[in-house]
Design a protein around this nucleic acid. Structure first.
Lengths: 342, 342
DNA sequence: TTGTACGCGTTATCAG
DNA sequence: CTGATAACGCGTACAA
């Protein structure tokens, strides 16, 4: 469909104001070297006519789009929703736009999206999604292409690839160290799928904390799930209860899984924290109001989005000035789901 | 910063292929009237050179951007996060892009965003946010301007303004009717702020259900909150417990508030549903795993996003072909937080 | 079926 | 300080 559009162009403003288009352009862009009188007059005409420049024409001429691609795996995951929220706010604060692309369905889509985004106007891409094993040819292609890319949970040496994430090794360590501090030694764990870097990192933190206290790693105490959700934690706990091992504490790698696990424990007649102490990971809103209020590891979610966009913009406006990996710190949030072992 | 960019233009492809730019353009856009041989040859050259057209130049020439503005109040609200997710997926399915704008901080921002969006490339705007009382001059301006607009929870007669939302009157009715069906007559309610249309609509549904059973509306049984969150429900329940009224059931206008209220009830030594039956609204993921599992009213969240974008695209591609209000239906999800009154 | 020439609305260049 | 004029990269009548 052919849009008639508000065909009010810079040329008409120039005519109406009796100046050249260039002068109008200069006024629009707050250039120096334009007489105060001229400026005011032009501004007045712009206002009177209600002139709005075309961002597209502007982009074409200036070769700048001020647009970022925000590729997120799934907004239904509160973690990524908050990362996205942080990213958008920071972008907007810097007068950038965010084009949203969720790759919910399958990761092959990501390649398609990224291609469409670059065909379009994007000056940089923020990949906010968990890292699993997947085809990253398109990522390599982008990077080779020189487009600044910020990603969570990934590794690939390249000058214009930046990683921003949570320090999950440290986070896992904090969780388990808290448990050991409370006197626990038989500590079970429900992990996310091993395809996820975050799951492997938290596992590493778990092992590190155990090692520090000379606690043997007991495979039967660790259950790997297919996902990170309530039902995964619920099912995992039911499996765990079948194992011929005892445990006085549980580290669930997500608050969702912690809650699912607690539900399974309750159904099995076990009390939290009386019989089993449970610590989660992420710090959801609901965790404060769960029964019992969930002790957990807080992750700075919005901050990831904010920092990611800051890095991206920095890389766009000053190529080569930033690179590397940026890990944000987690911290313990004590509530009532863990107790000291007498 | 001046980007060198992949200055691989259609002209170069044309030269390389020994044809005119127009032929390349025709091939790119799958036009008819191109000899098969020519088409294949051009396609081969395009592939070999790795040519990607510039979306910006394309937009400028064709006056189409295939971009939608997605204005959402706050991605940290799971409701709107899911609406946004649905919207994005549907947009992408139709080869449209979504520019994300969250107006988290204050509603004045919305005007600014909307202005920036239109200055830019947006062909339509989807306002996915609760309706409160706010300055809607910019909305009226947009509509007057002829830009298709879809919004949730709002009313304004205009040919190119479409509303897509949940039928909250019916939803509120379903919740309370369920309670009366179980024999309850003393039904308390915790509502969201009255500035929200959704809160007022659910209140209307509440009143309707009461009226049907000749139950008197008792003001002391209704608590209005400042928000929709866990703590609001928690505080509201504590206030309610101070009132000189009894109640055997509670309708909380959001699952978050229901959960907060249950927590307050527990702290007050009351059991759910033994002492008080509680029904929520929305059906969060966590509600299934709460203790007790929460009976609630399900809202089709993603569907709102999907439908909103469908309407928007329809309005863009066939102006005037759609208009009006589209209300999606809620339904009851029975779990364990309500019991039959003996 | 293919090519030419112009337009889209703005910024950049370079004189003046 | 200001103004022509040339890009920017592609779509589109119109002509061939």
């Amino acid at each position: 469909m052919r849009k008639k559009k508000n065909t009010l162009t810079i040329t008409q403003v120039a005519q109406e104001a009796g100046v050249s288009v260039q002068t109008v352009s200069r006024v629009m862009n707050n250039y120096e070297y334009v007489a105060d009188g001229t400026r005011q007059h032009v501004q007045e005409v712009i206002k009177r006519l209600g002139y709005r420049p075309s961002g597209i024409a502007r982009s074409l001429a200036s070769r700048r789009s001020y647009t970022l691609g925000l590729v997120t795996s799934d907004l239904s995951d509160p973690f990524f929703a908050l990362v996205a929220a942080g990213a958008e706010v920071e972008a907007s604060r810097n007068n950038y736009f965010c084009i949203l692309s969720s790759t919910e369905r399958n990761l092959d889509d990501e390649a398609r999206y990224v291609r469409m985004l670059t065909e379009r106007f994007v000056e940089g891409i923020f990949l906010a999604r968990p890292s699993t094993i997947y085809d990253d040819d398109h990522l390599a292609e982008l990077i080779a292409n020189g487009l600044p890319v910020v990603t969570t949970a990934y590794h690939l040496p390249a000058s214009n690839l930046m990683v921003v994430d949570v320090d999950n090794v440290e986070g896992g360590y904090q969780a388990v160290a808290h448990l050991t501090r409370l006197g626990h030694r038989d500590i079970a764990m429900i992990t996310g799928p091993m395809a996820y870097k975050s799951a492997r990192d938290r596992l590493e933190g778990y092992c590190k904390a155990l090692a520090e206290h000379s606690i043997l790693y007991e495979e039967a105490r660790v259950v790997v799930t297919d996902g990170w959700h309530y039902e995964d934690g619920y099912n995992a706990m039911n499996r765990l209860l079948l194992q011929p091992v005892s445990f006085t504490a549980l580290f669930a790698q997500s608050d969702e899984m912690a809650i699912g696990a607690i539900r399974a424990l309750k159904e099995a007649g076990k009390h939290v924290p009386a019989d089993v102490s449970v610590i989660g990971y992420n710090d959801l809103d609901v965790s404060t109001y769960y029964d019992p209020p969930l002790t957990t590891i807080f992750q700075p979610k919005r901050e990831i989005g904010v920092l990611g966009v800051q890095l991206l913009i920095q890389a766009i406006e000053h190529p080569g000035s930033v690179k590397g990996e940026f890990l944000l710190k987690t911290h313990l949030v004590e509530r009532e789901s863990c107790r000291r072992l007498e």
